[in-house]
């Protein structure tokens, strides 16, 4: 860093060299409107602005850190998984609809837009899977981390009457991505409602 700034989740700085200032940004650093939106949507994120000269290291509970370069695209990421972004990126919330709720990820997700680097955390290194026309991808909601590109999310339910009597396939909830884009999955599953059925 040379005088520029980085937005990072609160408490994720582990070490730095040089001169750094840490400033808490209220409401996810999206301004007043963003703050209100975040409050309302529950997709809350404690964010700080780090500014200064030198090298600053971020980490979170020894999870893997994955760098994503954005060139004007939009990255949709679970707020739990967003570690830090360059100041050139804007964050916001986006509505995922009932899909998110049913899979236990909440109704809203965090949107990152602009040009620059974003760092995502994942339990185990994230695997990047390409989705293209005619090649949809289905993901366990607990393993989903983020996605970019022009993708449709659909909830696919494999639950049938056997699920009710406890003989389900264990993968009753899947999120289907179709369109063009990339999906980041982690080799681990968060505890979600969907992962448990």
């Amino acid at each position: 860093m040379a005088g520029d700034s980085v937005k990072a989740r609160n408490g994720t700085m582990v070490a730095y060299t040089g001169q750094m200032n840490f400033k808490k940004m209220s409401g996810g650093g999206d301004g007043l409107r963003g703050m209100v939106t975040r409050r309302l949507t529950g997709e809350q994120m404690e964010v700080m602005e780090v500014k200064g000269q030198g090298t600053c290291y971020f980490a979170d509970r020894a999870t893997e850190v994955n760098l994503v370069r954005l060139n004007g695209e939009t990255l949709y990421v679970e707020s739990d998984n967003l570690l830090c972004t360059e100041a050139t990126l804007h964050t916001g919330t986006s509505f995922t609809g009932l899909n998110g709720m049913a899979s236990g990820n909440g109704l809203f997700t965090t949107k990152v837009e602009g040009h620059g680097w974003a760092a995502l955390t994942s339990k185990g290194p994230a695997i990047i899977l390409r989705v293209s026309q005619g090649m949809p991808l289905r993901v366990d909601p607990g393993a989903y981390v983020a996605h970019t590109g022009n993708l449709n999310r659909n909830l696919k339910s494999g639950a049938g009457w056997t699920t009710l009597i406890g003989e389900g396939g264990g993968e009753a909830m899947q999120v289907e991505f179709s369109g063009e884009g990339l999906v980041y999955v982690q080799p681990s599953e968060k505890m979600t409602f969907g992962g448990d059925v």
Binding site: L67, V68, G124, I127, I128, L129, T148, L182
Partner: peptide
């Protein structure tokens, strides 16, 4: 290291249905 010009704005290993290994590890954990 991810190159800034990486297509699609993603990290370098992008797997699709054809590039995924056949009955093998993608990384140590998958």
């Amino acid at each position: 290291a991810p190159l800034p010009q990486a297509a699609g704005g993603a990290g370098p290993t992008v797997h699709d249905v054809n590039s995924l290994p056949v009955n093998d590890n993608v990384n140590p954990y998958a």
